[in-house]
Nucleic acid binder design. Structure first.
Length: 894
RNA sequence: GGGCUGUUGGCUCAGCUGGUUAGAGCGCUGCGUUCACAUCGCAGAGGUCGCUGGUUCGAAUCCAGCACAGCCCACCA
């Protein structure tokens, strides 16, 4: 496609209001960018072209964007994508959404519950409704991503439940199964009584809760000698006593060691069980004796496995006590607990109760207290999958930013447990496994084969497909390669895998990042990305945002009010990798003011250009160092090169917060506050006006390029207008595809002199204020000391201070100009001038003493680097001179 | 129980491969402003860089311990 063939929108080219109004241009610009194909890299590379590939951390299809998304997508990811695109990399930033399994199903169930005719739906009907909702939600979230300005390649958008994606997940499951990575077994799993599904370890959260800890006596099964201690166990779940199949003690616990192997009777059911020894028991807790309930407790299940204990299921999926529960059967879990305590009390087996604060497991999606149940489930063997994924990070093939997150990654990966991948819900990827009703054989078809209709073992046609679906993360773990066409060997896959960057929040490093690394290596033989950049949470008013706190600020609302650029800039400003951040009103306000500042800088430059002929100019051509350029021009040009180098360095090292801050400082503090003011005077002088105008255009061009990754809308609006007034040599149709600037040579000596100028200007301004000079009122000031270095800047000083400057001259070390303020002869007496000088003198003497002390310190001369010593010597000379001048000035006044 | 991170002006945070006078934004004080921008300009006040030791010529920066805050992991029933 000819990228220049579509003209930029008129609304953008002609927008010229005094204040920038994002709503006028943002939508128009984004449409134009997208239609122009700027975001869609071709699958065939140009010679020597590098790629930059980053997958959008696919948001849930059912949600709206929240601030965390805005920070990740708009703040960091799009910034990186745009920066790389400007460097000429073929940049793929691939969008999509996640079907969000349980969450989406809960959302839609709630919606359907409001409609009376939508109750009691069949599975097929319900899935029909799910799809209806998907089609409703999806454009909404995609629209919000566009509002943020994300330069996503919409021609490659994917949804985890698209038919082709479903096929790819099916293939993945089958391959893993055939390779022995998957197995089905009776194991204890986390069960949610509300959601009626299992969930993985990662989805289990813990909350502190206070419960009653009951001490219960388990009578000896056989007669014991006098003085034998009672076996008393402590439990918070007395209702599970009926499912106990042992009592465990620590093997080294002297109190219990003699009784290991003896039998006790489980209360309520009078079952004879053994006292066993197991390391898992904490001898310090309770009495040191633990009731073992393999059917309803994770630890106990593992103890049971080690000792081949029978498993009794006393609670069913609905939370009702089963027929195995003896006298408790038929009761609900909580009622059964009370009943158990009551009966134990009656029988004299309840020794005592005390309150205990402990952690209870809850389901992260609904906060319901989990019920561990033993069920036949699909699991993924993780140990072997984790090994190469650990190695990939350890060897540096994948870099995690910030680096300390690597420790957390290793910690989890090295202790990884098998992953329960099935969910007992309807919305999700079906499991391509069938069970023979006659011989119980598991039938998993070959990857290209149709669904099986007969059991290969017993020839029965009575097959039933597994009714469960796969965990949402099972499919999102494949995102970096399935979106590119895997398992087919597509051109996209060849070109864009492995990817470059994965940017996301640190809260899903295990859920998503680790699993993508494992599955990428498993399916592709290579890691899915080279760098993982993790960002923190966004807080508002010091608190983590959550709906229950009511402090969820919608990024969409902020964009509509203040613009995407403002939000993007504010989110990233002053934030470092991995750190949580605070999005305050003040930050947003500052970002908005900066955007407006930029807009007005642009207006000033455009107005300047309008008035002059521009033969032989180009906006991106650096004005040559000729007679038309005054010192101010040469200075800002040099500072521009510094800003380019600094911005590039900060981006290369992922210091995004500092990158935006540095550019704000340059554009506002140097370009606008200093140079623009100076340019006004240059523009009045016909000999220098052209040089000033060209400098304004060039520096603006650079500033716009440098800021475009963070503030794409306002920068492109200005660039399009600037380039229409003054075309570029490059000829890029938009900043989106314009080149990132390369830093050129600087004039460090001039920059240093200008730093002196800034000091002098400040000193004069202070004097004016002290002298009570009115604005516009001219003052004559004489500069003393070695002023040669700044003489050529006299006009600049005069302009910036509205003061007539004369130079007293005088030879001496160059540093004397730093003390210039003491020699300023102001014609009228300045109130407080002398007090000010006294104070300065005291400070100067302190500084001098510090320099002397440091230079005289034993070891300094021998051990400090030469540059540091030289610097300190120069400082000493400067300070001596300053003290001398201050003393002289005070003496003169007196 | 294990681990991670943070503690820098009133607030929110940068800086920390050790080396000028520790920075920014907001807030605050004073002055100013038709002429790109009041979404503005200028000036100013405000910090023993959590505490205690150590290494070093030199520590906000490196090391150890401690305190406080937050987070993650974990089979304390």
């Amino acid at each position: 496609m000819d990228k220049a063939s579509i003209a930029p929108p008129d609304a953008v080219l002609t927008f010229s209001e005094k204040n920038f109004r994002p709503s006028v241009v943002e939508g128009e610009l984004y449409d134009w960018w997208e239609r122009s194909g700027f975001f869609a890299p071709p699958a065939t590379p140009a010679p020597g072209e590098k790629t930059f590939v980053m997958m959008l951390p696919l948001p849930n299809v059912t949600g709206d964007l929240h601030m965390g998304h805005a920070l990740g997508f708009g703040g960091y990811e799009d910034l990186m994508a745009r920066w790389h695109r400007m460097q000429g990399d073929a940049t793929l930033y691939l969008p999509g959404t996640d079907h969000a399994g349980i969450i989406a199903q809960i959302v839609v169930e709630k919606e359907l519950a409001k409609e009376t005719d939508k109750k009691g739906l069949t599975r097929e009907q319900f899935l029909g409704e799910m799809w209806k909702w998907m089609r409703h939600y999806q454009p909404r979230i995609y629209g919000q991503l566009r509002m943020l300005g994300c330069s996503l390649d919409w021609s490659r958008v994917h949804f985890t439940m698209d038919p082709d994606m479903q096929q790819r997940v099916r293939t993945h499951f089958i391959r893993l199964y055939k390779r022995g990575r998957l197995y089905r077994a009776d194991r204890i799993v986390h069960w949610c009584l509300t959601c009626q599904t299992t969930f993985s370890d990662l989805e289990l959260l813990h909350v502190e809760r206070t419960d009653q800890l009951s001490y219960v006596r388990y009578p000896w099964a056989d007669a014991m000698p006098d003085g034998t201690p009672d076996v008393i166990v402590a439990t918070t779940r007395p209702e599970t006593i009926v499912a106990d199949t042992a009592v465990a003690v620590h093997p080294e616990d002297a109190r219990w060691k003699p009784f290991i192997g003896r039998d006790v009777l489980v209360p309520l059911v009078e079952r004879r069980v053994k006292i066993i020894a197991d390391e898992a028991v904490d001898p310090a807790f309770g009495t040191g004796a633990l009731k073992v309930t393999p059917g309803h407790d994770q630890t106990d299940f593992e103890i049971g496995q080690r000792h081949s204990l029978p498993i009794i299921s006393a609670i069913d999926k609905s939370g009702t006590m089963t027929g195995q529960a003896g006298i408790l059967s038929g009761e609900l879990r909580d009622a059964a607990r009370a009943r158990a305590v009551e009966v134990l009390k009656q029988r004299g087996l309840l020794v005592r109760q005390e309150p205990i604060t402990h952690a209870v497991g809850i389901h992260d999606r609904c906060q319901t207290v989990e019920e561990p149940l033993v069920m036949r489930q699909w699991f993924m063997r993780m140990k072997e999958l984790a090994a190469p994924a650990i190695e990939a990070v350890r060897s540096g093939k994948i870099q995690i930013v910030p680096a300390y997150q690597e420790k957390i990654y290793f910690e989890w990966m090295e202790n990884i447990r098998d992953w329960a991948i099935a969910r007992q819900i309807w919305w999700g990827h079906s499991i391509p496994a069938w069970y023979c009703r006659d011989c119980s054989e598991i039938v998993v078809p070959d990857e290209d084969a149709p669904d099986p209709t007969a059991c290969p073992k017993c020839r029965s046609n009575d097959l039933a497909q597994d009714p469960d679906v796969l965990d949402t993360w099972f499919s999102s773990a494949l995102w970096p390669h399935t979106t590119l066409g895997w398992p087919e060997r597509t051109a996209d896959l060849a070109r864009f895998y492995p990817g470059t960057m994965l940017e996301t929040g640190y809260d899903i490093i295990f859920f998503w990042v680790a699993r993508m690394i494992m599955m990428g290596i498993e399916n592709m033989g290579d890691v899915p990305f080279r760098t993982v950049y993790l960002h923190g949470l966004v807080r508002i008013g010091g608190q983590k945002m959550s709906k229950s706190k009511g402090n969820v600020e919608s990024p969409v609302g902020v964009i509509q009010e203040l613009g995407a650029d403002t939000l993007r800039f504010a989110l990233v400003n002053g934030v470092s990798a991995g750190a949580d951040s605070e999005l305050s009103e003040g930050k947003l306000q500052n970002a908005r003011e900066f955007a407006n500042k930029l807009w007005n800088i642009g207006r000033f430059v455009l107005r300047t250009l309008e008035a002059r002929p521009q033969t032989g100019w180009a906006a991106d051509r650096r004005p040559v160092d000729d007679a038309a350029l005054g010192p101010a021009e040469r200075w800002i040009l040099s500072r521009t090169e510094a800003a380019i180098a600094e911005a590039t360095r900060l981006l290369e090292t992922y210091h995004f917060g500092e990158y935006v801050a540095a550019l704000q400082q340059f554009a506002w503090g140097e370009f606008a506050d200093v140079y623009l003011e100076l340019a006004k005077s240059s523009l009045r002088d016909e000999r220098r006006a052209d040089g000033a105008a060209r400098t304004l255009a060039y520096v603006l061009d650079r500033v716009l390029r440098l800021l475009h990754p963070s503030m794409p809308f306002i920068t492109d609006t200005l660039a399009l207008q600037l380039w229409r007034a003054l075309p570029t040599d490059e000829g890029a149709p938009s900043l989106v595809v314009a080149r990132w600037p390369l830093a050129g040579p600087r004039d460090l000596a001039l920059e240093e002199r200008f730093a002196v100028l800034v000091d002098v200007v400040r000193a004069i301004r202070n004097l004016r204020q002290a002298a009570g000079a009115r604005p516009g009122q001219r003052l004559a000031v004489t500069l003393g000391g070695e002023t040669g270095a700044i003489r050529e800047l006299a006009d600049a000083i005069a302009h910036l201070t509205q003061t007539t400057v004369t130079f007293g001259g005088g030879a001496g070390p160059a540093v004397v100009v730093r003390a210039v303020e003491v020699r300023l002869g102001i014609e009228q007496d300045a109130a407080g001038h002398r007090a000010r000088l006294e104070r300065d003198l005291a400070e100067a003497r302190d500084a001098l003493a510090r320099s002397r002390e440091l230079l005289a310190r034993p070891g300094f001369a021998e051990k400090a680097p030469a540059a540091v010593i030289a610097n300190e010597r120069a400082k000493l000379a400067e300070r001596e001179e300053r003290v001398r001048l201050l003393e002289a000035e005070i003496a003169r006044l007196a």
